[in-house]
Simulated scan of single mutants.
Amino acid sequence: MGAKTYLYALLAALLLAGPSAGQLAEFDKISPGAEASVPALVMGASTEPQGLLPSVKRVQFRTETGWSSWITLKGVRLTTAPVAVSPAPGIVDILTGGNENDLWQIRLRGQETWSDWIRIFGPPPYNKNLGGVHFRKYELAAISTGSMDGDYHLFTWGPTNHCLYKRCWGCGSGSVACDRSLDWIRIEGEIGSRPGAVLHSDRIHIFALDSSRGLIWNFADLPAVGSGDLPAWDGWRPLGRSFASPPAAASDGEMIHIFALSPGGGIGHATLDPETGESSLETINEKMDSSPTVVIGRNRIDLFGVVGGELIQIKNEGGGWTKGENLKGSISGQPTAVSDGQRDIWVFAQGQGGWLWGIHHSPKAEG
């Protein structure tokens, strides 16, 4: 083969390969009457192991009540609902199943600086002794221990109706790492839904529904950060409440609040004293198609869910629940909400195109 023919063949191969090693990130800003495109702020480099640069696009503005425009974050097509945690002020980590059911993570600093998409580990199952039955493709609950190099505790619903547990850790590069050689660990006792998790008073609390849709609760003392020790679970116990969707949980520092769809319609809100196990229940008269997700801040509870493919927010600032506000969007499935530790709230969900959609709120922007 001549040198010129070889060069043409090489160029053709490179063109066919395309951007498989990563995508050039762009942040397209769309505003009424004007369009502009500027580079995105991206941490890391596409040469990082398993890295994939995101592409971020603004699709809609909502500023009158302090909410940003919606963004779509491309690069990984989601296969499960995302889950978001904040390990430090101004930092948000999103974990999700994506592409070929791998587990992916991406980190947000501030409001516009994104890391690469990082593949944490491959598709399920990792529990080889389960006969090759996939667990729920990384339908996760997660907590972090409050520092960027701290621990991440992940939970999912296994194929034998057990909660599966994985302990991971933060890296200085802006990513989350897990030991790929270690299996998911099965927590004894059967569950019947995706779990919810919350950190309260140095204990990890997990919630799920049982096979009869009753709410059940388990907890363990938080292992020392970096110790590698496993939580010693106390065992599942019933709370005497029934729900119609998987639970979401958050702590106000004194009580744990659990939200899920109510069997009779509306949203069930259980309040649990984790010291005594006593709980109370109210029903919020608001329609949602998805399980709710919740953020609890200073004397305020923000609750989010999906109705007809659009995000709905209701809140309680001590005077009762407000009427739902429609934040629009084009999303599906279960949203996740998180405070970034600096009073901003982010909500993420799988949206149109299978991409990650997100919107954020700054209380200081409220009129």
Results as ranks from 00 to 15, higher is better:
residue 178 C to Q: 04
residue 247 P to D: 02
residue 139 E to R: 10
residue 131 G to R: 10
residue 141 A to Q: 05
residue 124 P to H: 03
residue 302 D to G: 09
residue 109 R to F: 07
residue 152 Y to I: 02
residue 12 A to R: 13
residue 60 Q to H: 11
residue 365 A to S: 13
residue 171 C to Q: 13
residue 82 P to G: 00
residue 120 I to D: 00
residue 103 L to F: 06
residue 192 G to N: 02
residue 22 G to H: 01
residue 161 N to Y: 09
residue 208 A to P: 02
residue 249 A to E: 02
residue 202 D to F: 07
residue 134 H to V: 13
residue 212 S to V: 03
residue 105 Q to R: 00
residue 63 T to V: 13
residue 32 P to M: 09
residue 333 G to E: 12
residue 248 A to P: 03
residue 242 S to C: 05
residue 167 R to G: 05
residue 135 F to Q: 11
residue 126 Y to V: 08
residue 107 R to V: 05
residue 177 A to Q: 12
residue 111 Q to C: 00
residue 297 G to S: 13
residue 147 S to R: 13
residue 323 K to Q: 15
residue 45 A to K: 08
residue 275 E to Y: 06
residue 327 L to R: 08
residue 349 A to Y: 03
residue 206 I to F: 02
residue 30 I to C: 01
residue 136 R to S: 15
residue 70 W to A: 06
residue 328 K to L: 15
residue 136 R to Q: 15
residue 146 G to W: 07
residue 326 N to W: 06
residue 361 H to A: 06
residue 139 E to Y: 13
residue 299 N to P: 00
residue 338 V to N: 05
residue 32 P to I: 14
residue 267 I to H: 00
residue 153 H to S: 05
residue 348 F to Q: 04
residue 64 E to F: 11
residue 160 T to K: 15
residue 216 I to W: 03
residue 213 R to Q: 13
residue 57 K to F: 09
residue 11 L to T: 07
residue 200 H to D: 09
residue 263 P to L: 10
residue 222 L to I: 09
residue 99 N to H: 11
residue 295 V to N: 03
residue 141 A to S: 14
